[in-house]
Amino acid sequence: MENLCLDKTDEELVALVLEDQEYFGCLMGRYSAPLSRYIVRIIPSFRDSTEDVLQEVFIKIYLNLRGFDPSLKFSSWAYRITHNHAISLLRKESSRPHTVSVDNDEYDFFERYKADDQISSKEMRYAKEEVSYVLGEMDPKYREVLILRYLEEMDYDEIGDILKKPVGTVGTLISRAKTIFKEEYTKRYGTEK
């Protein structure tokens, strides 16, 4: 089945799944890694149960397949469902500690952040734990836009589609989130390294 999926777009696969549920395996194969990584980032306290959360997300995606709007990218739609599910879990479990996962192999957060902000690049790779801590301390509405922008590397349109917010609002949220991030970082660790 996996070979049959290779040349198909996500949108074509959605149409195929509605005729033959086996094709859903193809979609899950494509999205299990990015969505599980996103789940860990957005609700790090569920790191141990990521697989369970991901299963619930896939069941939701499957249930709602006929509600998929083809004018959206499937990835945005899938992330939106994941995001909503993660946020509802986060609300139920708000007492758990939050430290956002910033893995070594993807640690370019500050590089992208600085490029976006047109700040001259300095070596910051060693600040992984600090970034994790500061992100974890932030209000979820600011944390999630920084994660989507600088860890998931999404553009403003995609972030808008996932969060169901206008692009202008996404820009404002990112700008505020960066200011808050800088303030929190400076407060805790002094000036940026």
Partner: peptide
């Protein structure tokens, strides 16, 4: 994970919601 989800879909006879719902 994929196998678990596919098994659940089959065992629990989960079907996508109808277009009318949306």
């Amino acid at each position: 994970c994929i196998n678990c989800v596919m098994s659940r879909i089959k065992d629990e006879k989960i079907k996508p919601k109808s277009k009318w719902t949306f």
